[in-house]
Computed example of a mutant assay.
Amino acid sequence: MNAVTPVLEVDELVRHFTTKDFLGREVHRVRAVDGVSFTVAPGETLGLVGESGSGKSTTGRLVLRLDDPTEGRIRFEGQDITHLNAAQLLAVRRKMQVVFQDPFSSLNPRMRVGDAVAEPLKSHRILKTAAERHERVAQLFQRVGLDPRFAERFPHQFSGGQRQRIGIARALAVSPRLIVADEPITALDVSIQAQIVNLFMDLQQELGMAYLFIAHDLAMVRFLCHRVAVMLRGRIVEMATTEQLFAHPRHPYTQALISAMPIPDPDRELARQRIFYEAVTPPREARLAEVEKGHWVLA
Protein backbone atom coordinates (compact mmCIF):
# COMPACT_ATOMS: atom_id res chain seq x y z
CA MET A 1 0.00 0.00 0.00
CA ASN A 2 1.19 3.51 -0.79
CA ALA A 3 2.16 5.88 1.99
CA VAL A 4 -0.86 8.00 1.08
CA THR A 5 -4.08 6.55 2.48
CA PRO A 6 -6.46 5.63 -0.35
CA VAL A 7 -9.71 7.56 -0.52
CA LEU A 8 -11.51 4.26 -1.07
CA GLU A 9 -10.58 0.67 -0.25
CA VAL A 10 -12.86 -2.20 -1.23
CA ASP A 11 -11.94 -5.67 0.05
CA GLU A 12 -13.65 -8.87 -1.15
CA LEU A 13 -16.98 -7.10 -1.60
CA VAL A 14 -19.96 -9.40 -2.15
CA ARG A 15 -23.62 -8.70 -2.92
CA HIS A 16 -26.02 -11.55 -3.57
CA PHE A 17 -29.72 -11.22 -4.40
CA THR A 18 -32.09 -14.08 -3.75
CA THR A 19 -35.59 -15.01 -4.84
CA LYS A 20 -37.82 -17.08 -2.59
CA ASP A 21 -40.96 -19.15 -3.00
CA PHE A 22 -44.21 -18.58 -1.11
CA LEU A 23 -42.83 -20.59 1.84
CA GLY A 24 -39.82 -18.27 2.13
CA ARG A 25 -37.37 -20.85 0.78
CA GLU A 26 -34.55 -19.63 -1.44
CA VAL A 27 -35.04 -20.79 -5.02
CA HIS A 28 -32.44 -18.70 -6.83
CA ARG A 29 -29.34 -16.68 -5.97
CA VAL A 30 -27.80 -13.99 -8.19
CA ARG A 31 -24.16 -13.20 -7.44
CA ALA A 32 -24.27 -9.59 -8.65
CA VAL A 33 -20.93 -8.74 -7.00
CA ASP A 34 -18.80 -11.71 -5.98
CA GLY A 35 -15.51 -10.85 -4.30
CA VAL A 36 -14.43 -7.46 -5.72
CA SER A 37 -11.34 -5.67 -4.38
CA PHE A 38 -9.76 -2.37 -5.46
CA THR A 39 -8.49 0.97 -4.18
CA VAL A 40 -8.86 4.54 -5.39
CA ALA A 41 -6.12 7.02 -4.50
CA PRO A 42 -6.65 10.75 -3.87
CA GLY A 43 -6.99 12.58 -7.18
CA GLU A 44 -7.21 9.32 -9.15
CA THR A 45 -9.87 8.15 -11.60
CA LEU A 46 -10.55 4.42 -11.60
CA GLY A 47 -12.66 3.22 -14.50
CA LEU A 48 -15.01 0.31 -13.89
CA VAL A 49 -16.02 -1.27 -17.20
CA GLY A 50 -17.89 -4.32 -18.45
CA GLU A 51 -21.02 -5.40 -20.24
CA SER A 52 -24.52 -4.77 -18.91
CA GLY A 53 -25.20 -6.97 -15.91
CA SER A 54 -21.54 -7.33 -14.95
CA GLY A 55 -22.10 -5.73 -11.53
CA LYS A 56 -20.62 -2.27 -12.16
CA SER A 57 -23.55 -0.18 -10.93
CA THR A 58 -24.20 -2.51 -7.99
CA THR A 59 -20.57 -2.03 -6.94
CA GLY A 60 -21.06 1.73 -7.11
CA ARG A 61 -24.18 1.52 -4.95
CA LEU A 62 -22.34 -0.63 -2.40
CA VAL A 63 -19.43 1.83 -2.24
CA LEU A 64 -21.89 4.63 -1.49
CA ARG A 65 -23.71 2.40 1.01
CA LEU A 66 -26.95 2.88 -0.91
CA ASP A 67 -27.11 -0.90 -0.73
CA ASP A 68 -25.77 -3.18 2.00
CA PRO A 69 -23.06 -5.71 1.13
CA THR A 70 -23.57 -9.40 1.80
CA GLU A 71 -19.90 -9.75 2.73
CA GLY A 72 -16.67 -7.79 2.47
CA ARG A 73 -15.36 -4.46 3.70
CA ILE A 74 -15.50 -0.85 2.53
CA ARG A 75 -13.09 1.72 3.92
CA PHE A 76 -13.33 5.43 3.17
CA GLU A 77 -10.28 7.54 4.03
CA GLY A 78 -9.17 4.77 6.38
CA GLN A 79 -12.53 4.44 8.18
CA ASP A 80 -14.48 1.21 7.94
CA ILE A 81 -17.97 2.23 6.78
CA THR A 82 -19.28 -1.26 5.98
CA HIS A 83 -21.69 -1.48 8.89
CA LEU A 84 -22.36 2.16 9.79
CA ASN A 85 -25.99 3.05 10.38
CA ALA A 86 -27.82 5.91 8.62
CA ALA A 87 -26.94 8.50 11.28
CA GLN A 88 -23.26 7.53 11.26
CA LEU A 89 -23.18 7.57 7.45
CA LEU A 90 -24.42 11.15 7.25
CA ALA A 91 -21.00 12.64 7.97
CA VAL A 92 -19.33 10.25 5.51
CA ARG A 93 -21.79 10.97 2.72
CA ARG A 94 -20.82 14.61 2.77
CA LYS A 95 -17.46 13.45 1.40
CA MET A 96 -18.74 10.98 -1.20
CA GLN A 97 -21.30 11.95 -3.83
CA VAL A 98 -22.83 10.48 -6.97
CA VAL A 99 -23.61 11.63 -10.50
CA PHE A 100 -26.38 9.47 -11.94
CA GLN A 101 -26.68 8.06 -15.43
CA ASP A 102 -29.99 9.63 -16.43
CA PRO A 103 -30.02 13.44 -16.24
CA PHE A 104 -33.75 13.43 -16.98
CA SER A 105 -34.90 11.41 -13.96
CA SER A 106 -32.23 12.44 -11.43
CA LEU A 107 -33.80 15.88 -10.87
CA ASN A 108 -37.15 16.53 -9.22
CA PRO A 109 -39.36 18.00 -11.99
CA ARG A 110 -41.29 20.10 -9.45
CA MET A 111 -38.19 21.65 -7.85
CA ARG A 112 -36.28 24.60 -9.24
CA VAL A 113 -32.78 23.49 -10.15
CA GLY A 114 -31.19 26.02 -7.81
CA ASP A 115 -33.12 24.48 -4.91
CA ALA A 116 -32.02 21.01 -6.03
CA VAL A 117 -28.35 22.05 -5.96
CA ALA A 118 -28.84 23.73 -2.56
CA GLU A 119 -30.52 20.65 -1.05
CA PRO A 120 -27.23 18.95 0.05
CA LEU A 121 -26.17 22.20 1.73
CA LYS A 122 -29.37 22.15 3.78
CA SER A 123 -29.21 18.41 4.52
CA HIS A 124 -25.65 18.63 5.84
CA ARG A 125 -26.25 22.01 7.51
CA ILE A 126 -23.23 23.54 5.80
CA LEU A 127 -24.68 27.00 5.16
CA LYS A 128 -27.37 28.27 7.53
CA THR A 129 -28.95 31.17 5.67
CA ALA A 130 -30.78 31.24 2.36
CA ALA A 131 -28.55 34.09 1.17
CA GLU A 132 -25.39 32.03 1.75
CA ARG A 133 -26.88 29.05 -0.06
CA HIS A 134 -27.97 31.27 -2.96
CA GLU A 135 -24.44 32.62 -3.33
CA ARG A 136 -22.95 29.11 -3.18
CA VAL A 137 -25.38 27.86 -5.85
CA ALA A 138 -24.43 30.76 -8.12
CA GLN A 139 -20.75 29.86 -7.71
CA LEU A 140 -21.47 26.21 -8.51
CA PHE A 141 -23.43 27.09 -11.63
CA GLN A 142 -20.54 29.22 -12.87
CA ARG A 143 -18.07 26.42 -12.10
CA VAL A 144 -19.94 23.93 -14.30
CA GLY A 145 -20.45 26.44 -17.11
CA LEU A 146 -24.05 27.54 -16.51
CA ASP A 147 -25.53 31.00 -16.10
CA PRO A 148 -26.41 31.49 -12.39
CA ARG A 149 -29.73 33.01 -13.49
CA PHE A 150 -30.76 29.54 -14.66
CA ALA A 151 -31.14 28.52 -11.00
CA GLU A 152 -34.74 29.77 -11.04
CA ARG A 153 -35.73 27.45 -13.87
CA PHE A 154 -37.22 23.94 -13.75
CA PRO A 155 -35.53 20.80 -15.14
CA HIS A 156 -37.76 20.55 -18.24
CA GLN A 157 -36.32 23.86 -19.45
CA PHE A 158 -32.84 22.38 -19.93
CA SER A 159 -31.15 20.08 -22.43
CA GLY A 160 -29.68 16.74 -21.37
CA GLY A 161 -26.15 18.13 -21.19
CA GLN A 162 -27.27 21.08 -19.10
CA ARG A 163 -29.15 18.78 -16.72
CA GLN A 164 -26.04 16.65 -16.26
CA ARG A 165 -24.05 19.79 -15.45
CA ILE A 166 -26.69 20.60 -12.82
CA GLY A 167 -26.26 17.09 -11.42
CA ILE A 168 -22.51 17.64 -11.24
CA ALA A 169 -23.04 21.00 -9.50
CA ARG A 170 -25.25 19.25 -6.94
CA ALA A 171 -22.54 16.64 -6.31
CA LEU A 172 -19.91 19.38 -5.90
CA ALA A 173 -22.01 21.39 -3.44
CA VAL A 174 -20.59 19.70 -0.34
CA SER A 175 -16.95 19.59 -1.59
CA PRO A 176 -16.66 15.77 -1.76
CA ARG A 177 -13.45 13.76 -1.77
CA LEU A 178 -14.92 11.04 -4.02
CA ILE A 179 -17.53 11.11 -6.76
CA VAL A 180 -19.07 7.92 -8.09
CA ALA A 181 -20.07 8.67 -11.68
CA ASP A 182 -22.46 5.93 -12.81
CA GLU A 183 -22.38 6.03 -16.62
CA PRO A 184 -22.85 9.82 -16.52
CA ILE A 185 -22.55 10.36 -20.30
CA THR A 186 -24.50 7.37 -21.69
CA ALA A 187 -27.77 9.27 -22.18
CA LEU A 188 -26.12 12.25 -23.90
CA ASP A 189 -25.31 13.09 -27.51
CA VAL A 190 -21.72 12.39 -28.58
CA SER A 191 -20.82 16.09 -28.84
CA ILE A 192 -22.16 16.72 -25.33
CA GLN A 193 -20.35 13.66 -23.94
CA ALA A 194 -16.99 15.24 -24.72
CA GLN A 195 -17.99 18.45 -22.92
CA ILE A 196 -19.02 16.57 -19.78
CA VAL A 197 -15.85 14.45 -19.75
CA ASN A 198 -13.70 17.57 -20.15
CA LEU A 199 -15.64 19.14 -17.28
CA PHE A 200 -14.87 16.11 -15.08
CA MET A 201 -11.17 16.39 -15.90
CA ASP A 202 -11.05 20.15 -15.28
CA LEU A 203 -12.79 19.79 -11.93
CA GLN A 204 -10.42 17.02 -10.86
CA GLN A 205 -7.37 19.14 -11.69
CA GLU A 206 -8.87 22.10 -9.87
CA LEU A 207 -10.26 20.35 -6.78
CA GLY A 208 -8.22 17.14 -6.51
CA MET A 209 -11.22 14.82 -6.24
CA ALA A 210 -11.13 11.08 -6.88
CA TYR A 211 -13.58 9.43 -9.28
CA LEU A 212 -14.99 5.95 -9.57
CA PHE A 213 -16.06 6.21 -13.22
CA ILE A 214 -18.51 3.47 -14.21
CA ALA A 215 -18.90 3.11 -17.97
CA HIS A 216 -19.02 0.80 -20.96
CA ASP A 217 -17.59 3.31 -23.43
CA LEU A 218 -13.94 2.24 -23.55
CA ALA A 219 -12.87 5.23 -25.63
CA MET A 220 -14.02 7.64 -22.91
CA VAL A 221 -12.48 5.45 -20.20
CA ARG A 222 -9.17 5.45 -22.06
CA PHE A 223 -9.27 9.25 -22.27
CA LEU A 224 -10.36 9.97 -18.69
CA CYS A 225 -9.12 7.23 -16.35
CA HIS A 226 -5.75 6.57 -14.74
CA ARG A 227 -6.50 2.90 -14.06
CA VAL A 228 -9.16 0.49 -15.31
CA ALA A 229 -10.85 -2.53 -13.72
CA VAL A 230 -12.76 -4.88 -16.05
CA MET A 231 -15.76 -6.66 -14.56
CA LEU A 232 -17.42 -9.87 -15.75
CA ARG A 233 -20.29 -11.65 -14.00
CA GLY A 234 -19.62 -9.92 -10.67
CA ARG A 235 -15.83 -10.40 -10.69
CA ILE A 236 -12.90 -8.21 -11.67
CA VAL A 237 -11.05 -10.17 -14.36
CA GLU A 238 -8.33 -7.62 -15.11
CA MET A 239 -7.04 -4.41 -13.53
CA ALA A 240 -4.15 -2.23 -14.68
CA THR A 241 -3.12 1.27 -15.56
CA THR A 242 -4.95 2.56 -18.62
CA GLU A 243 -1.76 2.44 -20.68
CA GLN A 244 -1.02 -1.17 -19.67
CA LEU A 245 -4.57 -2.37 -20.24
CA PHE A 246 -4.99 -0.98 -23.74
CA ALA A 247 -1.43 -1.79 -24.85
CA HIS A 248 -1.32 -5.35 -23.48
CA PRO A 249 -4.74 -6.74 -22.48
CA ARG A 250 -4.21 -10.19 -20.95
CA HIS A 251 -7.67 -11.61 -20.20
CA PRO A 252 -9.65 -12.90 -23.23
CA TYR A 253 -12.71 -10.90 -22.17
CA THR A 254 -10.69 -7.66 -22.04
CA GLN A 255 -9.21 -8.45 -25.43
CA ALA A 256 -12.71 -8.96 -26.83
CA LEU A 257 -13.94 -5.66 -25.39
CA ILE A 258 -11.02 -3.70 -26.79
CA SER A 259 -11.32 -5.36 -30.19
CA ALA A 260 -14.92 -4.12 -30.38
CA MET A 261 -13.91 -0.46 -30.03
CA PRO A 262 -14.72 1.50 -33.22
CA ILE A 263 -11.73 3.07 -34.98
CA PRO A 264 -12.23 6.62 -36.37
CA ASP A 265 -10.53 5.70 -39.65
CA PRO A 266 -12.62 4.06 -42.40
CA ASP A 267 -9.77 1.94 -43.80
CA ARG A 268 -8.56 0.72 -40.41
CA GLU A 269 -12.15 0.14 -39.29
CA LEU A 270 -12.80 -2.14 -42.28
CA ALA A 271 -9.64 -4.10 -41.48
CA ARG A 272 -10.38 -4.36 -37.76
CA GLN A 273 -10.40 -7.94 -36.49
CA ARG A 274 -12.99 -8.68 -33.83
CA ILE A 275 -12.13 -11.12 -31.05
CA PHE A 276 -15.09 -13.15 -29.86
CA TYR A 277 -15.31 -14.39 -26.30
CA GLU A 278 -18.20 -16.35 -24.86
CA ALA A 279 -18.76 -14.76 -21.47
CA VAL A 280 -18.81 -17.37 -18.72
CA THR A 281 -18.89 -16.95 -14.96
CA PRO A 282 -15.30 -17.01 -13.64
CA PRO A 283 -14.49 -19.97 -11.37
CA ARG A 284 -15.05 -19.26 -7.68
CA GLU A 285 -11.49 -20.31 -6.84
CA ALA A 286 -9.91 -17.95 -9.38
CA ARG A 287 -7.90 -15.06 -7.93
CA LEU A 288 -6.22 -11.96 -9.32
CA ALA A 289 -2.51 -12.48 -9.97
CA GLU A 290 0.02 -9.72 -10.68
CA VAL A 291 1.52 -10.45 -14.13
CA GLU A 292 3.57 -7.26 -14.11
CA LYS A 293 3.85 -4.33 -11.72
CA GLY A 294 0.38 -2.89 -11.29
CA HIS A 295 -1.22 -5.27 -13.82
CA TRP A 296 -3.55 -7.91 -12.34
CA VAL A 297 -5.36 -10.71 -14.18
CA LEU A 298 -7.83 -13.28 -12.88
CA ALA A 299 -6.25 -16.72 -13.09
Rank of each mutant, 00 (worst) to 15 (best):
N108T: 04
P103R: 00
I236F: 02
R29Y: 01
K128W: 00
G24C: 05
T242Q: 07
I74M: 11
E12W: 00
A271W: 01
L178F: 06
R287I: 14
E290A: 03
G35C: 01
R287Q: 15
R287W: 06
L64K: 05
E238K: 02
V174T: 15
R227P: 07
L288D: 09
V144T: 06
M209S: 12
S159F: 03
P266Y: 15
D34F: 10
L232S: 11
H124E: 06
K122Y: 03
P262S: 10
L224F: 15
H248R: 15
A271C: 02
F141K: 13
L245I: 07
S37T: 14
H28M: 12
P264V: 04
A86R: 14
F100V: 09
L218C: 07
R149D: 15
A181P: 07
R177Y: 00
G208I: 11
E183C: 05
V117L: 12
Y253F: 07
A138M: 02
N108F: 00
R163H: 06
D265C: 12
G53V: 08
L232R: 02
L288I: 09
T45N: 11
V297Y: 04
R163D: 08
S191I: 08
E51H: 01
L64S: 08
A32M: 05
A271P: 10
L62C: 01
R272M: 10
G24K: 09
A86F: 00
N198F: 01
Q204D: 01
I258Q: 14
I263S: 09
G50R: 08
V4L: 08
L23E: 10
A194I: 09
L107I: 13
Q162S: 09
F200R: 03
T58E: 07
P109A: 02
F100E: 03
